[in-house]
Nucleic acid binder design. Structure first.
Length: 480
RNA sequence: GGCCCUAUCGUCUAGUGGACUAGGACGCCGCCCUCUCACGGCGGAAACCGGGGUUCGAAUCCCCGUAGGGCUACCA
């Protein structure tokens, strides 16, 4: 079978983690089977759809590397298709015009609920006479179109992940397939498009499982063959509710801005609801594609865990090609004003070396910039804890003074030579090297933690190191 | 309310009737490495929602509870 799958977001907001995961599973399935991954934009909600979120969704998908083979198809540009389908249903008496207004419907729904009845449409417009229709239209009512749903029998959803799910037709009502503004509803348009685009597998979030019998009824009324369904579990926030803004970063765009790597997000998302065959969870994309199967998708909703994503991000940050990581880190350094934009070509090697020095100890690109600050800016303050632990120790200024004198003559000035100078000095003074190293780190970086001191010294260069030692010596003498 | 889905460590999960003393990962704790912080290595605490069945045997199958989620819109 020639696999054709689609991702069909509605452009009513950012591409969030849940949508990205759905897109990923479709993409993986297509790649795995040499199929076609189609992007469709379900923009039939005129009020909520926006050009802005349309663009953001496309950008996010591209950034993640989930390139589509066809599309994007916009439902708003395919209205003719739906109109024709609706007309044929009307002609075949499989659908009918309904003149009830939203207000009337809402009132009846409230009443039904108050009386403890199911809030379903009562089918009152099903058998309107032509005269009645004329009268209602004369009142200025614009009709919707409803599908005639059989009140007997069952509709069965064949789901690759959940098996056969049976719905009693009696629990369904004559739902609206075309709104009074002539725009189709989701449950109508999606069926026609899936058929028209030759979709073989509908892979989407579980929230659509309950909608599926309606879509099957539409497909049957239209005489379509059904695709295979796969309803993947939902992704929930830590409080077990649907992901939303109040849960903090949930959109792909926000993760990009926070310094997450597409490789990490893809890898993490693949692990949400799907599991690899072995114990290894950090997997290159080719391996995920190779192993991917709908059969290994779990049934239960997953709670989203930022900690694990961040851990995976840290892993990719320190294992991905250094030049690649450096290129990605540069905008974050520029955002903090550490390096100019554009970056002069001759300063690239230095930036690259700085990234190499700090990337092992951080988890995001934005943290790379934070961890690298003192390589690009002057020291304006010393970490409080370090001051107490090192600068406050009597004799520290003198020690730094001696260290400075040694470093002055070190040539060339690099990791090995500075380390030798320090080790030698410590030996001569009969003190542990740490007694020299720790206050020096604080003096040159303002911090108590970071890369190995001698890496820092080499990266900073002799001039800056000597100047910062002077600055620290003076600071200590002034404060203690 | 009705209908539907789901239920294994805090979280993601492995597990498809005996190989389970329930495995892995994140997080947490401890130790090692070490100039700090990380990384890495080693170790530890930590789970089968409850109750009934079926079976020689149940995390696994069935039923009932319970809990969470979804749908029940002229949203998708």
């Amino acid at each position: 079978m020639n696999v054709r799958v689609r991702f069909a977001p509605s452009p009513t907001g950012s591409l969030h983690i849940g949508g990205a995961r759905t897109a990923l599973f479709n993409w993986l399935f297509a790649r795995k089977h040499g199929g076609t991954f189609i992007l469709r934009i379900d923009d039939t909600d005129l009020e909520r759809s926006s050009e802005e979120s349309y663009r953001e969704i496309l950008n996010s998908l591209k950034w993640l590397g989930l390139e589509w083979d066809e599309g994007p198809y916009l439902q708003s540009e395919r209205l003719d298709l739906y109109r024709k389908a609706a007309e044929s249903l009307l002609a075949e008496d499989k659908a009918y015009l309904c003149y009830c207004t939203p207000e009337e419907l809402a009132a009846r729904r409230r009443q039904a609920q108050a009386e403890g009845r199911a809030p379903a449409y009562d089918g009152r417009c099903r058998n309107l006479t032509p005269q009645e229709r004329c009268r209602l239209e004369d009142e200025g009512r614009r009709p919707t179109i409803r599908l005639k749903v059989p009140d007997k029998g069952t509709t069965v959803v064949k789901d690759v992940i959940r098996g056969e799910v049976v719905f009693d037709n009696s629990t369904l009502d004559d739902f609206i397939i075309v709104k009074s503004n002539g725009i189709p509803t989701y449950n109508f348009a999606t069926v026609i498009d899936d058929h028209d685009l030759g979709i073989t597998h509908v892979i989407r979030a579980e929230e659509h499982l309950s909608n599926t019998p309606k879509q099957i009824l539409v497909a049957q009324a239209l005489g379509y063959e059904l695709p295979l369904y796969a309803h993947v579990p939902m992704i929930l926030a830590p409080d077990r509710t649907k992901l939303s803004k109040r849960h903090g970063a949930t959109s792909v765009e926000e993760y990009r801005e926070a310094g997450y790597l597409p490789e990490a997000i893809i890898n993490y998302l693949a692990l949400l609801g799907w599991s690899p065959e072995g114990d290894e969870e950090i997997l290159p994309l080719e391996e995920i594609i190779r192993q991917f199967s709908l059969e290994r998708v779990s049934k239960n909703a997953a709670i989203y865990d930022n900690k694990k994503l961040t851990w995976i991000n840290g892993h990719y940050l320190r294992t991905l090609d250094l030049d690649k990581v450096t290129r990605l880190a540069i905008p974050f350094l520029q955002a903090k004003g550490f390096v100019p934009e554009p970056l002069p070509e001759d300063s690239y090697p230095h930036v690259r070396a700085v990234v190499a020095a700090v990337r092992d100890r951080v988890k995001t690109l934005s943290e790379v910039a934070d961890a690298a600050s003192y390589f690009f800016t002057n020291i304006t303050e010393y970490e409080e804890k370090g001051v107490r632990k090192f600068f406050a120790i009597p004799g520290t200024a003198d020690l730094l003074e001696q260290a400075k004198e040694r470093l002055k003559n070190v040539e060339p000035f690099n990791k090995e030579t500075t380390e030798k100078a320090y080790r030698d000095l410590a030996a001569e003074l009969g003190i542990p090297a740490g007694q020299l190293i720790h206050p020096t780190r604080l003096a040159v970086s303002g911090r108590t933690m970071g890369p190995g001191l001698f890496d820092i010294l080499e990266l900073l260069g002799k001039d800056k190191v000597l100047a910062r030692l002077d600055q620290a010596i003076e600071w200590i003498r002034r404060n203690f």
